[in-house]
Design a protein around this nucleic acid. Structure first.
Lengths: 246, 246
DNA sequence: CGCGAAATTGACTATATTCAAAGCTAGTGG
DNA sequence: CCACTAGCTTTGAATATAGTCAATTTCGCG
């Protein structure tokens, strides 16, 4: 059946059905795989849906599988013994989740929105990495990007004011989730994938401080918020300047 | 000549002389190279000494070469336009410096101590990565470790008090530079590779706050400091607990 | 409509910053 | 060898920013 139909995108007709619409195949690590390899890997993968708020794996869990995010956003968190928490990363489709070549994870992974992931068993994934240098190369590139992101965020955590932190957060989301507003102007809209408590944990602030800064940005006409979670950025230029400390 | 002598460590006698005593060969990315490959790579490398305080490469420089740290410690920094600065990483021998597969760097690299590095030209290094999957694998492992380190430090920056930050910094140094004190007790000593201003930039604090917390740790008999830069940790257990927020 | 969770707002407090002054330390030259 | 300087570091006092605690308001959902 698949062989008879013309492929709209001109790609190999043999790629697995579940991969065909998967962003990870086009922009994630699976891009490095040939169709035959994709087919083989997909034989041992499975899709899993995770509800918003559920934990995918706990800090210091044993590593037993890896995954690509197919849909949604996840947060990576670390906690101190007394409960203080820090979100150390937000990841969106089609990024890779997991800590290859390790026995233990060092972060908790939690679904920030409703999430769909494509799960690889540890052994099969690592075999694939070993056999296909391009695959590992791709993973290296993603890891380098994540390292860059982490270091940029360190500047936010260490050196920015509460106001600048909140602005930085909104700019980050706009870049990852933002859609041009239907009104046709250059306003950008998105739905917050995190509640205030999580935003606070991401920014190293308290809920109250986040709330106050949001209010201030609203009063300054940089953003608009509807029902606590739908954000419209009214002036991206000024918001970016604020985020960058100008 | 080299062939006639028995090798004390039983290793291939053909490794380049400069690599023979280099920590990167045993613990860094060069560990992944066979002696023939090491020989080839070393043909295009050169050693360079950099004085404490000198900048090795600037943020947003074009990437033209990579390097291994042979001796000493370097700091990776990012700055905001108004001059606020954040150190986003400290690296010690035999770690790798550089941003592979990129046009531009995203951090400044500066010698924290007097430093010796082993420089690879961009093209040759990337060719080696491409030809030798083990080499790239090793780089991936180092990058994953750096990502982990960065994320751990994000907790320090976002969620710890000034006191805990300074304790965390001292524990970090003890792990990387510490030597058991000559007195034979379980005290650990090292020389600070950073002055107060840099420590402040690493911890997201001011000079004065760092100084006050150091004084407090000294008064609490957790550490001792001689001549502003020689630190002895008197009670590692308590210092670690403090750093971890217990 | 009414309930519980989440977010906002207000008043007060604490922690770290800022500004200012004085103390060390290492290196230089008399 | 000592005095002097320049650059760091420490210390102190006042201030500001974000945190804490508490009260309301808003939102989402049965």
């Amino acid at each position: 059946m698949s062989g008879a139909l013309p492929q709209s995108d001109g790609e190999d007709a043999n790629i697995p059905a579940s991969c065909r619409v998967c962003g990870a195949r086009r922009f994630g690590i699976c891009k490095a795989l040939k169709s035959s390899e994709l087919l083989r890997l997909s034989a041992s993968t499975r899709r899993r849906k995770i509800e918003h708020g559920d934990t995918i794996s706990f800090e210091e869990d044993e590593v037993v599988e890896y995954a690509n995010i197919v849909e949604g956003a996840v947060k990576l968190t670390k906690i101190l013994k007394d409960g203080r928490q820090q979100i150390v990363g937000l990841q969106f489709a089609p990024e890779f989740i997991g800590k290859p070549f390790s026995e233990m994870t060092t972060v908790s992974v939690e679904a920030a929105t409703d999430v769909e992931i494509c799960v690889f068993p540890k052994a099969e994934f690592e075999r694939m990495l070993h056999q296909e240098p391009n695959f590992e190369h791709r993973l290296l590139e993603q890891t380098l990007t994540q390292l860059d992101d982490a270091r940029s965020w360190m500047v936010t955590l260490g050196r920015k004011t509460a106001q600048e932190k909140v602005a930085s957060f909104l700019v980050l989301l706009a870049n990852n989730l933002g859609r041009l507003n239907t009104s046709g102007s250059n306003m950008i809209s998105f739905t917050l994938p995190l509640k205030r408590a999580d935003i606070a944990d991401f920014l190293g602030l308290t809920i109250e401080t986040v709330s106050r800064q949001m209010t201030r940005l609203r009063k300054d006409k940089l953003i608009d918020i509807q029902r606590n979670l739908d954000v419209t950025i009214l002036d991206m230029r000024r918001l970016k300047d604020l985020a960058d400390g100008n």
